[in-house]
Design a protein around this nucleic acid. Structure first.
Lengths: 213, 213
DNA sequence: GAAAGAATTGAACGTTTGTTTTATTGTGAA
DNA sequence: TTCACAATAAAACAAACGTTCAATTCTTTC
């Protein structure tokens, strides 16, 4: 046999990406064989090489798409005007929603960096750095405006990123607990962590309020 | 050749564990071949099988030791008397110090769970659950005593664990910035996150300030 | 100094790996 | 209908994989 009925390059490509994300997220990049991936797609291993020259090219493509989409999505939903308080809340909401919605590619992009060649690792880390830099900017602006009580924006940014990315480890949305619910709790914890004064919808039991209670 | 001069079972075992942790932490369990491990130890691959029947037995042994040591170490340093405020601070201090001191085994135990068989995975997760349960207990007791402002102890515990374990991703101790410095900053952030009433100074110190202190 | 056992080597086993090559078939445009 | 091309199958490759086994040497004990 050769070309199969109904075969379509675009559909196969999309299927490869989707199944690769699922397999790598579940078992890891090294543990996923090209034959196993092909079987999941419903194709022979050799067919994969029409779409990706090597296994590592596939991995890099998945990561690059994830990071590029993350940056683009955040750029789109980042509030143009609004103080650091609002912007930080928006950052957390977007981060949580994006990562929960892309659990597989998040796992891949976070856990399989060591499988990349040095040059490609650098490229991915560059994208990640741009994302984290934006969070640091928000924290610094908020601190300068007296909205946050932080001294080291880089340290705080690392702590926040680690905390909110952790959502994918335990949370699975169902009919009782939505992504939005979880995101708001993360927003509250983040604002607390940043030493933000309670305000508006982000009413968190503040230190001052608790003291007079 | 056969037995080499000065060969010692205990030393070889320790070397295998140490090198395996380093290799798995750096490249991943699947990416570490038994031959590469043997080369790092300075021995032939077959010699490894005197100490571990299979590659997965080795992995499980490393993880089990890590989790057991974590629980034992925390049990030892957990303050017997003291309120939830002190206990939470002690928990964070211990967690940060332990994980920074055992960066490799932390990486292995956190990232390679998927390589374990279901039974062994369950065993490791049981140990982890016991550890996290203790943190939830601290948070709940603190909330009941009015020391913390927390709605969901489980949720908060996950957030805290994720945040403070993240220390191993970026922090490397040097002569200017010690583990203790970093730990205190994490303590301050954790207490804030838990909505703890200020007692003493919990303003997050800057890294620059810590350096010159 | 000889016997017993601990520690390791070197070679080999069968499998699986990522990848390549060649041939073959379905598909869309002329 | 034909023809170029896109899409895949089937088979094969060398290399690397985890693991086993027999042989060999060091170490300890008596």
């Amino acid at each position: 046999m050769a070309r199969t009925i109904g075969s379509d390059g675009e559909k196969t490509l999309a299927a490869i990406r989707e199944q690769a994300l699922a397999l790598i997220a579940r078992r890891g990049y090294e543990a996923m064989s090209m034959r196993a991936l092909a079987a999941a797609v419903g194709v022979q291993a050799a067919a994969l090489y029409r779409y990706f020259p090597t296994k590592e090219d596939l991995l890099y493509s998945l990561m690059d798409e994830h990071m590029t989409a993350l940056l683009a999505s955040w750029t789109m939903s980042c509030p143009a005007n609004g103080d650091a308080h609002d912007t930080l809340a928006a950052f957390v909401r977007h981060h949580v929603a994006f990562h929960v919605g892309r659990r597989h590619s998040t796992h891949v992009s976070n856990m399989e960096l060591r499988a990349l060649s040095p040059e490609r690792l650098t490229a991915i880390l560059k994208l990640r750095a741009a994302y984290e830099k934006d969070l640091r900017r928000i924290l610094r602006e908020g601190a300068d405006a007296g909205l946050f009580a932080i001294d080291d924006a880089a340290f705080t940014a690392m702590a926040i990123i680690q905390m909110i990315t952790g959502v994918i480890v335990w949370f699975r949305p169902d009919e009782r607990l939505t992504v939005a619910d979880i995101a708001e709790t993360y927003v509250a914890m983040t604002l607390r962590l940043a030493g933000a004064l309670p305000r508006g919808v982000f009413r968190v039991p503040s230190i001052a309020a608790l003291r007079t209670a």
